[in-house]
Each structure stands twice: as C-alpha cells, then as structure tokens.
Simulated scan of single mutants.
Amino acid sequence: MSVTAKICGLSTPETLDAAIRGGASHVGFVFFPPSPRSLSRERAAQLAARVPGRVIRVGVFVDPDDALLEASIGAGELQTLQLHNTSPARAAAIRAGTGLDVWAAVAIKTRGDLAMAETFTGAADRILYDAKTPPGATLPGGMGVRFDWSLLQGFRHPLPWALSGGLDPLNVAEAVTITGARMVDVSSGVESAPGIKDVTKITTFLDTVKAL
C-alpha cells in the first residue's frame, strides 16, 4: 500500500502549487489567528481556487465556534475539518452539523494518551496522532515536536488514522517504518521559518513519501 501525505499550513500560491505538483493527497489551511499559518477568508478563497479536484482541502481549527466554521468552510471550500483541543461531543456535533469528514487530533506523549483515540469513535472519521506541545505553548501543533513513535506499535486503532508531529524529509521514512502509518501530515518540517513554507522541502518530503 502506498503512503499519502497532507501538507499543512499552506499560505502562498507557490507552496500550494508545490504540494499539488508533488502529489499531496491533502492540503491544509489553518484558521486559528494565533498561528503564523492562519489565513484570512480572502486568502483561503484565493488558495482554494487553485486546488484540483483530486486533492482534498482540509481546514485546521482549534475548538472552533459555529460562526468561524461556517465562514471558513465557505471561503476555503473545505471538504474535511481537522479539530484540535475539541471534545468528542463537540466533534460529533460539528460532524453532524456540517456533513463533512472530521479528523480529531489526539496529542501523544505517553502510551496512556492513546486512550483518548477511543473516545472519538462515532464522533470523528479519522484520528490524527500529534505530539503534545511543551507547557505554556500557545499552539496545539506545528512546532516541530515529535513523540515516541514506538508507542503506536501494537496499538489497536479505533479509527483510520494519520501520523503528525515533528515529521520532516529526513525522518518521515523512519516514522512510517516504525508506526506503519499510511498517511502522514507535515507542517513545520517543510518550513524555512515559522509559517514560511519552503518549496524545496515540500518537494523533497513528497518525493520521499512516494518512494515508501
């Protein structure tokens, strides 16, 4: 089976085009103002118009309210919603209310953290295993932090899942080998500075994934 990849936090036509050209299955648009990757509705609409039908547009949110969701879904022509710091009950309500696929991010540091994945059964369509960010961090992800990938070995996943957290062109092959992931998600690992995506790094990451 091949491995698919989502490039998250895209904010310019050049980097979006590199992700599409490189074979990304999903592209991520962030709607969370504290993030350096956050998009205005206007920019989201401009970028969404460049995405071909074969690539899925994912909106990334942190416990969003209905007004933000409605505006962002329309602007970004979103097909999937990635939710961070969102309870299973709220995720289920968003899934039912929008009719869109929902990914629930589960932050991992210890084996015990994996238990949270089970609570999203029936509330989400996919689990995104991400790394817990350091205490005091203002962002739930996109900080280049990875977790111990061996924690996923032998774990019975309750839902389809993707691997995130600290991935980059140099370690993604190892991460897939250890975890058996069939989908990977990268953001800061293909940046030259926080929020600034790098065309060469995006291309290298996707070339590496295609070779797996």
Rank of each mutant, 00 (worst) to 15 (best):
F120D: 04
I196G: 00
G99M: 12
R90Q: 13
G166A: 05
I73V: 15
Q153P: 00
Q153K: 15
G136N: 09
G76W: 00
I178D: 02
P52R: 11
I56N: 00
P13M: 10
N85Y: 01
A117T: 04
F120A: 11
A117I: 03
R95T: 02
F31L: 07
E70H: 13
D125F: 09
D148V: 02
P160A: 14
L206K: 02
V184G: 01
L128P: 01
A211S: 15
W149C: 12
P52S: 10
Q79R: 15
R95G: 11
A75M: 05
S192I: 08
V102F: 06
P34E: 08
V51P: 05
I20M: 07
G154P: 07
P158Q: 07
G23K: 06
L114F: 04
G22M: 05
A123W: 03
A19V: 05
T80Q: 11
R41D: 10
I20L: 14
L83E: 04
H157L: 14
G74K: 12
A162I: 14
V190E: 00
V186Q: 05
H84G: 09
V176Q: 06
P36Y: 04
R57L: 14
C8H: 00
M143F: 00
L206H: 04
A193R: 09
I108F: 08
I56W: 01
H84A: 12
A19I: 07
F31M: 02
V60F: 07
G23V: 07
D63Y: 08
S164I: 03
S11T: 14
A48N: 07
G165L: 08
R156E: 15
D17Q: 15
R90H: 08
R95S: 13
T119I: 00
T12D: 03
A89Y: 02
R57A: 12
G22V: 04
G112I: 11
P194S: 12
P194M: 10
A117K: 05
S11K: 10
L128T: 01
F120Q: 02
A105W: 00
T4W: 06
V51D: 04
P33E: 08
P135W: 00
G76I: 01
F147N: 01
P64F: 02
A107Q: 14
A105M: 07
R95L: 00
G76C: 06
A104L: 08
V55C: 10
F31V: 04
A162W: 00
F32P: 05
R43C: 02
K197G: 13
L68D: 11
L151D: 03
V199A: 15
G136Y: 07
A137M: 03
E14L: 12
P169D: 11
T119P: 00
A44K: 04
T119F: 01
T86F: 06
T204E: 14
R21P: 00
S150R: 15
D125Y: 03
P52K: 09
F61S: 03
A181W: 06
E42S: 14
L128A: 09
L16I: 08
A91Q: 01
A123T: 06
E70Y: 01
A49W: 01
D113M: 09
L47P: 01
G22P: 08
G59K: 09
G189I: 07
G180I: 09
A123Q: 04
F205T: 06
D65I: 10
